[in-house]
């Protein structure tokens, strides 16, 4: 039985797709059979970030509508063993997803995989609710700003009431906070909320903190999830996150402003 993890946020553009791709990659690199599903029907971003956009033939909607088999739609990742991508449709309407259809797809994937990572669309409406409905765990992606924290709080309310686990009175969905685009320097100047404030409001366990990093932009332009870039701060932070998801206790990194050394002051080298 696979563990179903939804990556969700309420607010758009906070780093859900980046995180879903990086975490799915990290889980697969650690030997877990993993599939990452794009629930953002109509926008289709995940395949770009995973670098497989040219290999998309069938998608989640085709499978749900019975126009293609699951195995026809699943794309095997070129770089990482154990990793598959189930893309979203770019052309279809988001109403093409049905609750029963999603359940059927997740049920069959559950038999094959260890982890199913669902990349949720933004918002709190039907699309986001479908992506979270069958989840066992939720990774709530939050940026250090008031509106993002507020939306995450809203999503946490939905996770506690509008999911299968809530409706059937099972153990609640395990909720984990992932703070992304964290810039300790801007936190220090008061431009951004700090880690403690976010945690105090949301009151859920922190699973990771990803710094604002140029490596993310580079990775998405190249279509290689940033987890592969283990030289970079973001790549390491996602690897830490994956370890914590798998139950390891790892100290937090990248949450403090770095004192710049003499050389970097002279040569102006930034953090990479």
């Amino acid at each position: 039985m696979a563990k179903i993890i939804v990556v969700t946020s309420g607010k758009g553009g906070v780093g859900k797709t980046t995180s879903a791709a990086a975490i799915a990659t990290g889980l697969a690199l650690r030997g877990n059979k993993t599939v990452v599903i794009d629930f953002d029907v109509g926008l289709r971003n995940l395949d770009l970030i995973m670098g497989c956009e040219r290999r998309v033939v069938y998608d989640l909607v085709n499978v749900i509508q019975g126009e293609a088999g699951l195995n026809q739609a699943l794309i095997r990742d070129k770089r990482t063993e154990n990793l598959h991508i189930l893309p979203a449709s770019q052309t279809r309407d988001k109403d093409a997803l049905t609750m029963e259809g999603v359940e059927r797809v997740l049920d069959s994937l559950s038999e094959e995989y260890d982890y199913i990572v669902c990349d949720s669309p933004a918002g709190i409406e039907r699309g986001a609710q479908l992506a979270m409905y069958y989840a066992d765990e939720a990774i709530v992606v939050t940026n250090p700003e008031v509106s993002s924290v507020r939306d995450s709080d809203r999503i946490l309310g939905l996770l506690a009431s509008k999911t299968r686990r809530a409706e059937q009175n099972m153990d609640p969905v395990r909720e984990r906070l992932l703070i992304t685009r964290y810039d300790p320097n801007r936190v220090d100047t008061g431009d951004m909320l700090n880690l403690e404030d976010i945690q105090e409001i949301l009151a859920i366990k922190l699973v990771g903190l990803i710094p604002e990093s140029e490596a993310v932009l580079r990775a998405s332009n190249q279509g290689v999830p940033v987890t592969h870039d283990q030289q970079s701060d973001a790549g390491q932070a996602y690897a830490d996150t994956v370890s914590r998801l798998m139950g390891e206790e790892i100290p937090l990194r990248f949450h403090q402003a770095q004192k710049r050394g003499f050389l970097s002051r002279v040569f102006g080298g930034g953090r990479r």
């Binding site: 709190i124 409406e125 809203r154 309310g157 506690a160 009431s161 509008k162 809530a166 609640p172």
Partner: peptide, 11 residues
């Protein structure tokens, strides 16, 4: 205005 049947009672 956030369009929610989302105003779910806290569980």
């Amino acid at each position: 205005d956030t369009g929610a049947e989302a105003a779910a009672e806290a569980r």
